[in-house]
């Protein structure tokens, strides 16, 4: 059992969430525990059973996720990256909550899919694998160093259907579209990463410039998506300003042309999105979004909204 460190103090910036967390004590206790490690199977190369056996042979203790049996939870101090099967691209190491957006995006073989803020590429890889290494994944990032990390992920996992581009996502050329599906995993204040990195909980959660960028990225994503296509917006922060408020602003801008779909994954516990924050009423359909508090599934924090462009 990982030790519970009572010495880790909960940032004062989190106190404002007291009113919206269902079980504050459990929330605080979860934040003080180290985060489990998670590895998912590259089914283009091998099977979940073989990954499980390889991890066990290394003395690790893989537990299949309840909601995704091809992915495994490992104890917090595991180092699955430094193993032969990892070098061979048989699995990828990624936090459990980072596995949420791609099944909700539900990309299909042969489609054109855009990952607007893609580096370091773990979600790009999940998209490419789900598409059976066929069709088109365009993975964009505006940071050249991080884009190189993404290329490393593509190469190790053997992905043959990904193009990378270096561009400002909020200004991504419209002529590149339309896309059947767009993932917008925006830069955020990363409060949900607190269990990995206690430095993240700085005071910039909900900073106006950041929210402005997030809104611009989501708006661009909708513009790049074909009518009838799907857009998934994700962050790893608790801050409503970066989550529901961003989606609310874009919903208002698009009116009838955009609607929310339920963000639900069987076997994974989430809380509904907020429909009110600081006395401000939001679009009622925002309760269809998914809020992930760390104590619900022993993970990091996360937020996902699934949108469909109507026209």
């Amino acid at each position: 059992m990982p030790s519970v460190s009572a010495s880790i103090s909960i940032p004062s910036a989190f106190l404002r969430y007291r009113a919206i967390v269902d079980d504050w004590e459990a929330f605080v206790a979860a934040l003080r525990r180290p985060l489990p490690v998670c590895a998912w199977t590259n089914t283009l190369r091998t099977t979940p059973a073989q990954v499980k056996a390889a991890l066990e042979a290394e003395g690790l203790k893989p537990e299949p996720l309840a909601w995704r049996p091809d992915a495994f939870r490992l104890p917090p101090d595991s180092q699955p990256g430094n193993r032969l099967a990892y070098v061979l691209g048989h699995y990828h190491v990624q936090e459990e909550v980072s596995l949420l957006p791609v099944p909700l995006l539900d990309p299909q073989p042969g489609e054109r899919v855009l990952d607007l803020c893609a580096a370091p590429g773990g979600k790009t890889a999940q998209i490419a694998v789900r598409m059976q290494n066929r069709g088109t994944v365009v993975a964009n990032d505006r940071n050249p160093l991080r884009l190189r990390q993404l290329s490393g992920t593509i190469e190790r996992l053997g992905l043959l259907n990904v193009t990378t581009t270096l561009h400002d996502g909020a200004d991504y050329p419209l002529e590149s579209g339309p896309f059947d599906r767009v993932l917008v995993d925006v830069p955020c204040s990363c409060e949900g990463n607190f269990r990995k990195d206690q430095q993240v909980a700085d005071a910039f959660a909900g900073a106006p410039e950041l929210c402005g960028l997030q809104t611009a990225l989501l708006h661009r994503a909708v513009m790049l998506c074909r009518p009838g296509g799907r857009i998934v917006y994700a962050t790893c922060t608790f801050a409503p300003e970066e989550n529901e408020l961003v989606v609310d602003a874009v919903l208002r801008r698009w009116g009838e042309a955009l609607r929310l779909l339920p963000a639900h994954l069987e076997g994974f516990r989430g809380a509904p999105g907020l429909i009110e924050w600081n006395g401000r009423r939001l679009h009622p359909s925002l309760e269809l979004t998914l809020r992930v508090w760390p104590h619900l599934n022993d993970t990091g924090g996360f937020f996902v909204a699934v949108l469909e462009r109507q026209a």
Binding site: G110, T136, S151, T163, P173, G177
Partner: peptide, 12 residues
């Protein structure tokens, strides 16, 4: 069957 964009110019 890959259909990348011409703009922005693909890196890889």
């Amino acid at each position: 069957d890959h259909r990348p964009p011409a703009r922005p110019r693909p890196r890889t």
